[in-house]
Design a protein around this nucleic acid. Structure first.
Lengths: 350, 350
DNA sequence: CTGTTAGCGCTTTCAA
DNA sequence: TTGAAAGCGCTAACAG
């Protein structure tokens, strides 16, 4: 029976048919548990994510799940919403489940890595590798993510090219690597334009939309308010949009706004949001396939994949009012080109 | 060793300590696979969901995962985004994994039920039971959901009380049970007010936001446009809001708008959305606990839980401009009371 | 080509 | 209180 089910070479056609008939009859299903026990491989992946209600992460989960299913793997979710502390423990629990691999949408990368190191499970982290990190540190850990610094740079550069000189920055706490990197891009764009960033314009430590709203108001009540705002993600940008609108500032005429992530609703706001889009479901797929490759070919080395993001120009930045062809915006074709390269929407998403 | 780990009665203290030390030393973790094999229980739940990038479903997933973790279960996600066809097959696969129970955020209830029936796995469906359905049909299947008809009624009633007489309805295809039920509530509210529904005002078959936008425009270009719109969920409402705003209709002054679901962003639109909220994460928790109860006490009968929803009055319906106390709106306290009963926000959500 | 056997890591039962 | 043995459902190796 085992030989039939696993498609082994040497089985007579007659026997095969007979077995298959019986299987049909009884509605027999082989136990993945028993199988995993003997093979030492459970065909299960653990996916640790901190906020499933975030549409971007949901899309990521979708990419992960669909790629995994395609290759015969199942995905166990570890939801660490609200308490990052329990996360390490939960990940350890996955060891008991004998997951073959781990996917991490991280909160505190450093801590998590040490957990991984201990368990020795092959892992893919959704992020770019921290600076100074080398593969030798964790030969089991791969990284898949977009270049956040570049995204921040492109967004800021776009606003700068539009003539803005006072650009506010709305960011997450500095401990969030992605936010930090985007800020770095923001800074570099300013440098390249020979513009000094007014520290009063940079607000980090925004942990939710309410904080972003308050920060926006404060920014505007400042003696010298910004003429544009770059928010580290669409969520914060949406809060800013509401705050600005309610204060009577028109977006984009009074204040231009650029977000990050291209959340599904970004295009559907009353002022559609200009934002940096990344192929998030595709990222999930790439990461999952990479992980499975490594599981199935243990010799394969850890990898770093940087997936390009691209600027999507909609209404909130005001560019559409000034230029017919958004492609023509900006004097740095290199940037635009490299960021768009290989990425034209979310393939397979719809 | 087994006796120590499972906290069995008869072990000498000394031995226990010795075993525990060794466990620590070796970093030993019992294999859930082997355990599941012998006990016949995998401590795993399958969660089938059709669109994880929907924040409402993400919140549901969060509720499910957190409740499951609390009781020592893990959750395998089955993502059926895009192809409902493969769903049955994927659910069948879960049988191989020997999941102890199934949670279904359904697309085609009827079909799915037959799959379940065949597998014989205890199941909870996130929905209210279909009309005419009795427990005898599937003693293994429980239902947990909000009363969609009531929600539709409350929303429509609210608009009616505000004086609107021509209320548009934006809905999903009629095959989606929830949408159908909400429409029924809409109709009943009209009946109770002795108002005939103009068929031209009811649009079903809206499968995405783009369709909702188009439908809204069409509705408005009608000879006798509505003065209010009730959308079957916030997603469609947000599309309608954009369409209306772009056409130059002010919400709520020209057209009032009410949605459904209270998606996390609803409060953050430039015109905050009046909507029907349900404690979605809580629903996930309730369902999961119910399922686990049934797994652990096989005698426990299937249940039907209807979780109350409630109207959240924000800007888009215009009520806040007319009445100070939203509670005073409406002449049918029964409705309001029963819908709010026992539900005061999303406990434990933050 | 196919029947048989050992053993994956655990729990349970039965002796000691 | 503890050691030993059987067996959960499967695969792999070894004979036949």
């Amino acid at each position: 029976v085992s030989r039939v089910l696993n498609g082994h070479v040497s089985v007579r056609a007659a026997t095969r048919v007979r077995v298959e008939a019986a299987v049909q009859q009884l509605g027999y299903r082989p136990s993945a548990l028993a199988r995993g026990l003997v093979n030492g491989r459970s065909h299960t992946l653990g996916f640790a994510v901190y906020a499933l209600h975030n549409p971007t992460l949901g899309l990521l989960a979708h990419g992960v799940a669909s790629a995994a299913h395609l290759r015969g793997y199942d995905v166990i979710i570890v939801d660490s919403f609200g308490d990052a502390d329990s996360r390490g423990e939960r990940i350890a629990k996955l060891v008991e489940r004998r997951v073959d691999g781990l996917l991490l949408a991280p909160t505190r990368l450093e801590e998590e890595l040490s957990t991984i190191r201990r368990t020795g499970i092959k892992t893919v982290v959704f992020d770019t590798a921290p600076e100074g990190y080398t593969d030798d540190d964790d030969p089991l850990v791969s990284f898949v993510g977009t270049d956040n610094a570049r995204g921040g740079h492109v967004a800021t550069h776009h606003l700068l090219e539009l003539g803005h000189r006072r650009i506010g920055f709305l960011g997450y706490p500095h401990t969030i690597q992605g936010s930090k990197d985007r800020l770095q891009g923001y800074r570099r764009a300013h440098d390249e334009h020979g513009i000094q960033v007014d520290p009063a314009l940079v607000v980090e430590d925004l942990h939710d939309m309410e904080a972003a709203r308050a920060a926006t108001c404060q920014l505007m009540e400042n003696g010298r308010p910004p003429t544009a705002i770059f928010a580290v993600n669409d969520e914060l940008a949406i809060a800013a949009l509401q705050a600005l609108t309610w204060r009577g500032s028109h977006v984009p005429d009074d204040v231009a706004l650029v977000g990050f992530d291209d959340t599904p609703l970004a295009a559907w706001l009353t002022v559609p949001l200009t934002t940096i889009a990344m192929p998030i479901a595709e990222i999930g797929r790439i990461a999952t396939n990479l992980l499975i490759d490594q599981i199935e070919h243990p010799a394969a080395p850890a990898q770093r994949v940087v997936v390009p993001s691209r600027l999507i120009v909609r209404e909130s930045c005001g560019a559409s009012k000034k230029v017919a062809q958004p492609d023509k915006v900006g004097s740095m074709p290199v940037m635009t080109t490299r960021c768009c390269d290989g990425y034209r929407g979310h393939p397979g998403d719809k």
